[in-house]
Design a protein around this nucleic acid. Structure first.
Lengths: 223, 223
DNA sequence: ACCGAGTTAAAGCGCTTGTTTTAATCTGTT
DNA sequence: AACAGATTAAAACAAGCGCTTTAACTCGGT
């Protein structure tokens, strides 16, 4: 029953070890032996509690991304109560997408850079190998945000909105994955700064990107 | 001597096969046996011509990214001739970064989505495992663009410019890697559209992002 | 005390990986 | 024709992989 004086259960230790290592090095690069060594458990324990390495990964991903997606839909619902059927302010839509990540990051207890990598890998690999259980959820979230964005950006055709949402995902994913690497090729100090502040910057940037003028080349291009 | 009537050399076949497979599935996911089968060569040939799988990968990356970086610096030089010491238009700076990729993509003969993945992996894994030979080149390119961007965006402090350049890299990398996956969670048709047009959209978006207002929360935040 | 379910431990399964070794073959020179 | 060097081919290498098997252990309920 995981009472207070007893140690954390093996299953939990495996999940924690796995999410840490997956975040640091990626799924393929981490072996079951790496995980079980980190968790101080036997190799077979992964196949005992989960039935395979893949299911383990699914569970790691799900328990991080699922509450975030729930919170996103709730945030949109809140905006609906606030603004009714009129278009929401763009900035608040973006925050409804991003803030749940920041909050989950804090409440998860996971180091923020690791949380970012877990989440970033989810976004970057979106669609490819999402756990079956979160796929419909992702679809719902995406659909909701798309329709709100289209309403909030009446000057843009739907296709352009879609592309720019795609770009925004790129910004978020890249930031989550590589926020620690921003100063790699520069001599700037630019220390840590934390994920929170970074994501505030992301909102600014994406707002600008979504609202950008459509260049002449583009307008006459295709379609 | 690789004369005209003779077949392509084994070394070249290995490089072509490797770049195709790396692009499709990533570095770790492709085995030497995959590569040599695709290239119709023996397993040992990789270690004969290159001395390891890693060196092969380095060579694949280098010969794609090196001409692009050269072209980027040339493009900046051209702008310097055009505008002298006055700030360059933001849009032209971004195009100096992006257009060389489009051109190299066409002249490489590589399918555009594959080229995009090779290049995208370079950007996404930037710093982590770049070949030693291209690292100083990347540094030079980055430095040049940073200083031009700072001049072109006098309203922004250098740190914000750096962050937004980082975000822009996210957009480009994500687009290169996943431009085929944009419609995954939607029912929209949104067919192919080609890398060229996508990158034109990227320029629009990044222009907007770089020029975006700095929100109130940010200004008083840290520092 | 003993049983049985839940859990952990150790060993080994078949397979794939990158690399090496050894031998065969091709190619051009004398 | 014969040799030498460059190239290819086939086989084996040790190491690591995910997973399974089997046996040992733990511990609460009767």
């Amino acid at each position: 029953m995981e009472s207070e004086n007893e140690k954390v259960s093996t299953k939990e230790r495996l999940l924690v070890a796995a999410e840490k290592l997956f975040a640091e090095k990626g799924f393929q690069e981490v072996s079951l032996r790496d995980i079980t060594k980190e968790a101080k458990a036997n190799v077979a324990s992964v196949n005992y509690y989960f039935s395979s390495k893949d299911v383990l990964a699914d569970e790691v991903i799900t328990r991080h991304i699922s509450p975030v997606n729930d919170a996103r839909l709730e945030a949109l619902e809140l905006l609906k109560q606030k603004y009714g059927d009129t278009a929401f302010p763009l900035r608040e839509i973006l925050q409804a997408f991003i803030k749940p990540m920041v909050e989950q990051m804090h409440s998860s207890g996971l180091r923020s850079d690791l949380f970012g990598k877990v989440m970033g890998r989810c976004m970057a690999d979106r669609g490819k190998k999402m756990p079956v259980q979160v796929e419909p959820q992702m679809k719902a979230v995406l659909g909701a945000f798309i329709s709100e964005l289209i309403k909030a950006l009446p000057n843009l055709d739907a296709e352009t909105v879609l592309w720019r949402l795609h770009f925004s995902f790129g910004v978020v994913a890249h930031t989550l994955l590589f926020s620690d690497r921003i100063a790699d090729f520069t001599e700037m100090p630019l220390e840590g700064m934390g994920m929170d502040a970074s994501l505030e910057r992301v909102v600014d940037y994406c707002c600008g990107g979504l609202l950008a003028e459509v260049s002449a080349e583009q307008q006459g291009g295709e379609q």
